[in-house]
């Protein structure tokens, strides 16, 4: 199995500087070694480490250390500090081969869907363009206000690999809070209203969706039955070879627990074949992410 979206971070130090917030206070750590131990207990072999703690090069220090230390177990997703001039940072971060893509939380595009749309005017266009040139992955978690911009970018860069985060939910403004356990919580309709601009992207063969973050969007406890129909819809549209299971560790270690999440796909998609399950639980990530770098 491959866990396609986790976070690791060290305590704040001179060696590993990072931003802090309510989930990541200075003394908190979620180390690669702790993660590996948890993964191994549940039979998970590999993971995608997603940068947390800042966009600057220096704030990637712990992520880069983990990728260097465990090249057979991890690949990484970085962040970009300057969307207008991203090339140098993207190349430096991918230089050692561990980082294979970059996460975007916004597009910087036209917010009025009825206005003329020119992707070259989007704030993050240079990132998309350079990712397409260098075959880097775009790790996408766009706001609801901008999801309609994505198909235009895919039309411009049809070969680019794009992985929608967290079941392709696109958070609305004001929807992000923390639950009573301190975990991220996003208030959103289920299924997301943004689906009308997402599901048709099956036409682009490298648009993938990560099946993760159920805890943050569901209105019910594990195993999150209110999300089952949405999982089915994603499977029907994108097929298993474009879906990737992930846990979003460490936010889920207490509730519902890492091992429970290794079984969440079995409850969300009980009818899938063994071949489909193998793809979702790691085959897709192996083919599309671990084959890089």
């Amino acid at each position: 199995m491959i866990d396609a979206h986790v976070h690791v971070f060290a305590k704040v130090s001179e060696e590993f500087p990072r931003e802090v917030n309510v989930n990541t206070p200075p003394e908190r750590e979620a180390t690669a070694e702790q993660l590996l131990e948890t993964m191994e207990a549940s039979g998970v072999e590999k993971a995608i480490l997603t940068q947390i703690g800042g966009v600057e090069m220096v704030q990637h220090a712990y992520l880069l250390r983990c990728l260097k230390e465990y090249p057979d177990r991890f690949r990484g997703i970085g962040l970009v500090a300057d969307p207008q001039h991203p090339e140098d940072q993207m190349d430096r971060l991918t230089g050692d081969g561990g980082i294979v893509g970059f996460r975007l939380f916004k597009i910087g595009g036209e917010r009025d869907p009825l206005a003329p749309i020119d992707v070259r005017t989007f704030e993050t266009y240079p990132i998309w363009k350079y990712a397409a040139e260098k075959d880097y992955v775009i790790w996408l978690y766009p706001p609801a206000a901008e999801n309609h911009c994505v198909p235009y970018l895919m039309e411009a860069f049809p070969d680019l690999t794009v992985v929608y985060n967290h079941m392709a939910f696109c958070p609305g403004e004001g929807s992000f809070t923390h639950d009573e356990k301190g975990r991220p919580h996003i208030e959103s309709p289920i299924p997301p209203v943004t689906r009308y601009n997402t599901l048709g992207q099956y036409l682009f063969p490298n648009v993938c969706v990560k099946l993760s973050g159920q805890y943050a969007f569901s209105k019910e406890p594990y195993p999150y039955p209110d999300l089952a129909a949405w999982h089915q819809t994603l499977l029907k549209n994108f097929k298993a070879d474009r879906l990737m299971w992930a846990t979003d560790s460490p936010w889920i270690l207490e509730d519902p627990g890492y091992d429970n999440l290794t079984k969440v796909i079995d409850t969300q998609l009980p009818e899938i074949s063994e071949v489909e399950r193998t793809s979702i639980m790691g085959g897709t990530a192996e083919a599309r992410l671990f084959s890089r770098g």
Binding site: P113, A145, H148, P171, G172, E173, S175, V193, T194
Partner: peptide
């Protein structure tokens, strides 16, 4: 009605795909 629609898109409560 357009401003309300755009606000609904931004809050994730109205679809951008049709107005």
């Amino acid at each position: 009605c357009k401003e309300d629609w755009l606000e609904g898109i931004a809050t994730g409560t109205k679809p951008a795909a049709h107005f």
